[in-house]
Design a protein around this nucleic acid. Structure first.
Lengths: 297, 297
DNA sequence: GCCATTACCTGACTAGAGTCAGAGAATGGA
DNA sequence: TCCATTCTCTGACTCTAGTCAGGTAATGGC
């Protein structure tokens, strides 16, 4: 990696942790420990399961429990067992909790204002644009890619979203029964694999890869959640699938797609795929692509 | 202030404190409290006075003292009284301290690397550029501007640098005795004022303003430290001086400058000053500028 | 119905970060 | 020379943040 780049990142880290980090804690934690403030924020308007909070904040279960007791004692939250599974408990904000949360939001605004305040208009615009870029790219960098079983809850979530979106976008709607969708077995070792992209632990994208011996690998059911589009997640998924296909001894990957998915088609072109004649009779496909890759095994 | 801007800044703060802040502490503090790590970093290669460390890090004197004892016990630093003023003590890194500091640096590199690692080349370039911009502008926003007495140590420091730089840049060198430099009294209330720009408590720029009744206000001895040029400090100083001149009932500010100071001349042009005929016989001046401002008092 | 597992809670800790009130030495100005 | 001030240090605190080792109730597969 480029030393000058590393250096710039380090300077950025120092400036930002000093300026933002310190202020952040100061503003937020004025009359409440930051731990609790973060918790209050993370609970959100509709409430959250305790396990989810723990996961999101990466904290010890005992620790979260204790903080919840404290918030409860202050009358800011209520904690109740879920009706379906009484082991799991759900935290909800009370009215007082909502008020407190609004106060924290106000502080957060103050802080943001204090960063912009000394700058002139042109500088503000540039700072905000640069922050948006950093935000976007750092978020992109936290997306993780894992091969999961297609029956894993996160995988199923993605597949449901995938089908839902096709139903909406295809001119003719989408009926899974009519499509050449692979069954789960085909996307599971040794016949293939299923990749799930996650951001902060939540599934935000997926793609399946069929690895039939002797013929090209095939990408199926690729999907990226609308709110993370533009972060390069699809590109990363493609690159990862190509690498895995190569590891399994394939030197060509191919895929089919529907003409309604214009953004996907543009992506395939820009990632080095070329359009080829139909290699299957998928009723929902209008375009077929393939890409030659460097075989590895 | 624009709500959309505030919002973007808040998102940035959240992403960055989570991603950078947390990691930062984790990496750095692996076998040493972050307080001490920061201290070790701030001491630097040539050593520092204790009071300076305290100032820079904004910490309680007792707290710093205790940390220094701990670093001393580990053989990483030595603390000795200054020869000139034995109340002040100077901290210096030992060889072991230097080694430890290098380790911390290495960690910092690792962290920077880990932020870039998941991204592709184009994304890395963009992230680094955006970080540089944020860094630059946040730094610019922390520069403070205060009116000080021209005899204040920070003011004197700036004036020494100012004279030194002119000596270097003017074709003919610079001899203060030959110049029409105002004496300190002229840059002190009620005859004028002296502005010092500081970054993290260190003086990084200055300018004097003469406020003679009935005639235009005059800007003298404007200087910005080389390492903060490009942050818009000079522009901020000018704006502040104009505002103060207006408050004192002036509607014109003027200044003279030497042809060697091309960057300054460009600045005056871009800030709305226009070149006028010589209004004094300053031997070192080649250009004279003035700007009409909105009178306020 | 049994038993491993899961989700949460409690109690007992540790360590880091920071504050506050003095004490003592050195300095500088009247 | 005296006295207020400056600079640093020490001791005695407080408060968060976080860890670890059980313990209890609910759940789900056999």
């Amino acid at each position: 990696m480029d030393a000058a780049q590393i250096n710039q990142v380090r300077r950025f880290n120092r400036t930002v942790t000093e300026r933002v980090g310190v202020l952040h804690d100061h503003y937020l934690g004025r009359d409440r420990p930051i731990g609790e403030a973060r918790l209050l924020w993370e609970i959100g308007e509709q409430g959250q399961d305790v396990r989810r909070l723990r996961e999101r904040l990466g904290l010890d279960s005992g620790y979260v429990s204790r903080m919840l007791r404290s918030l409860e004692a202050d009358g800011l939250v209520t904690v109740e067992p879920q009706p379906r599974d009484k082991r799991v408990r759900t935290v909800r904000l009370t009215d007082a909790g909502r008020t407190e949360r609004a106060v924290l939001n106000g502080r957060s605004d103050e802080l943001a204002g204090s960063l912009l305040e000394p700058l002139n208009t042109a500088q503000r615009t540039r700072l905000v644009a640069a922050m948006a870029e950093v935000d976007r790219l750092l978020t992109a960098a936290t997306v993780t890619l894992d091969a999961l079983d297609p029956d894993h809850p996160d995988a199923r979530h993605c597949l449901r979203c995938y089908a839902g979106e096709l139903q909406e976008r295809f001119e003719t709607g989408f009926d899974p029964a009519r499509s050449l969708l692979p069954d789960a077995g085909e996307l599971r070792s040794p016949h293939g694999l299923f990749l799930v992209a996650r951001l902060h632990g939540e599934p935000v994208g997926c793609a399946g890869l069929k690895l039939p011996p002797g013929v090209p690998a095939e990408i199926k059911r690729m999907w990226v959640a609308p709110h993370v589009r533009g972060l390069g997640v699809a590109r990363r998924i493609l690159a990862e699938l190509e690498a895995r296909a190569a590891q399994h001894g394939h030197d060509v990957v191919r895929l089919d797609t529907n003409r309604a998915l214009t953004d996907a088609i543009a992506l395939y072109h820009s990632c080095g795929f070329s359009e080829v004649a139909a290699f299957n009779d998928e009723p929902y496909a209008h375009h077929w692509f393939e890409k030659r890759i460097a075989k590895q095994a």
